[in-house]
Amino acid sequence: MSKEILLTRRQVIRKTVIAFIQFFVLMSSGVAAWLYIKKLPLDNGLLGGVQPPIRDVLNANENVFNKTLSNQHLAKTYPTSMALKKPRVNGDVGIANDFDPTTWSLNITKKNNKTLSLSLADIQQLPKTEICFDFKCIEGWSQITHWGGVKFSDLMKAYNLGSEAASKYVGMATADYDYYVGLDMTSAMHPQTLLCYEMNGKPLPIDHGYPLRLIVPVKYGVKSIKRVGEIYFDDARPDDYWFQRGYDYYLGL
């Protein structure tokens, strides 16, 4: 037992008041810091974004989880019989306008600024991969869905895009740039990342991104861009639709 401490009434009051002043100073500095962060201008201006200190933490999170993600980390797959016949259609940014499939092609801008233009038939000639996995929407719901197409890594290999694969990021956009996403190269080259032209063994429906969409199971659904028209490479982050509107850039699962 420690030595007994006896204080007078006045000393007790003094000790109590000092403790409460310290408490008040600490708590209010916490509240002040929070209010200060809340009032900071958002990092993407008019479109929104998040406050810079919060963004720093999100970017630090990316650095942690991007380093630990490997091609051995695979999204759980399911038998195709479990796939939903009519998966939910959640986004139409970039695919809401009139669309003439005959004018579509996939344009890949190479590092030397030359464009590689591929037709759907070109893409379908590459080895086909299917995946049936639990598609996860950033809103919180998930659905087992079944897709078929070409691995992004297979396409890169088939067209000798080795120097492009050395970039840090891939950018993908609809032909009209209404919707656009950026992916780190590790996630893009992941063995489950597909450019899909089939859903449930049939050609992709128009509202699921016909003729070609990305399926990237290691990310939330917002990164799985529909009706991909443009692909480009960069060492800086390519523009990303939801990032500009206040979401994390990485969004890795």
Binding site: V50, I54, V57, L58, N61, I138, E139, W242, R245, Y247
Partner: peptide, 15 residues
């Protein structure tokens, strides 16, 4: 409806 904002705070203050 501020999903993005909620996620940002959640994944910062979780630490």
């Amino acid at each position: 409806y501020r999903l993005g904002e909620g996620m940002s705070y959640h994944f910062a203050f979780m630490w």
